[in-house]
Amino acid sequence: MNSTLMSRRSPYAPRPDERDPVIVVEELTRHYRVRLDGERFVEKVSRFFKPRYRYVKALDGVSFTIRAGESVGYIGLNGAGKSTTIKILCGVLVPTSGIVTVLGVEPYRHRTRNARRIGLMMGQRTQLLWDLPVRESFDLLGRIYDLSRETYRANRDRLVEALDIGDLMDTPARMLSLGQKTRCDLALTFLHDPAVVFLDEPTIGLDILAREKIRDFLKAEKKRGVTIFLASHDLDDLEIVTDRVMLVHRGRILFDGSHEELRRVTGGSLGILEDTVRRFYREAELG
């Protein structure tokens, strides 16, 4: 991994498709079992004795490869399967079938090993210690990830600077606004120098200025060679932060390519990604 990062900074950096694959997903499926509730009184009582189930195919044969230093956007309607994908890549969920490797290991088999090298941020679900000053969360997390004192200090100071949260460090987390919390959470996600970072709707509920700050930060991290996997409904996030989009619809990947390619495929001279995506959806629904 390190050698890849080093070579990327050299003037003879390999082209993106020659870099090491970081995430490899092949024919990934994931089903959820959902219990069916009866509608009428009798049905409800009888299903108590003999339950019925339905299977939701949240992912239905997804394949993609992401290489070191790439920054990929993951879009799709509500319930398309974005969060499911991220949870599988983080080792939280076990796939129903298919192959998944992150940095060479299967995440759900080697959850702890995987955990050291990835970062996960879920929008609106904070990992800050609720009643304590933000600084305490940094301290604890630094220890959880076994960072040496120097690494810890250096990383913390860099992130505090980059996300402009120096003034918040001594405030208890419960007193922070949503935007402030999100920035602190983002810093915590990057604290242990993860090679890959998964972001599930990081800008949800934020105002324009807060979004801008976060995008700038992510762009800078991308430059440092971090691989970014960003699921978002905010297409501006994707346009600015990522250089490749994957469009997932009902558990399948409909499109995988650069922003320009996406525009070309939908046949538009449309300049705005959002319109392009909307057209794509419309076609997908019809076809």
Binding site: K87, C90, G91, V92, R111, A115, R116, I118, L120, Q127
Partner: peptide
């Protein structure tokens, strides 16, 4: 989920 993505 949060607990599952930490190396502990």
């Amino acid at each position: 989920d949060r607990l599952l993505v930490r190396p502990l």
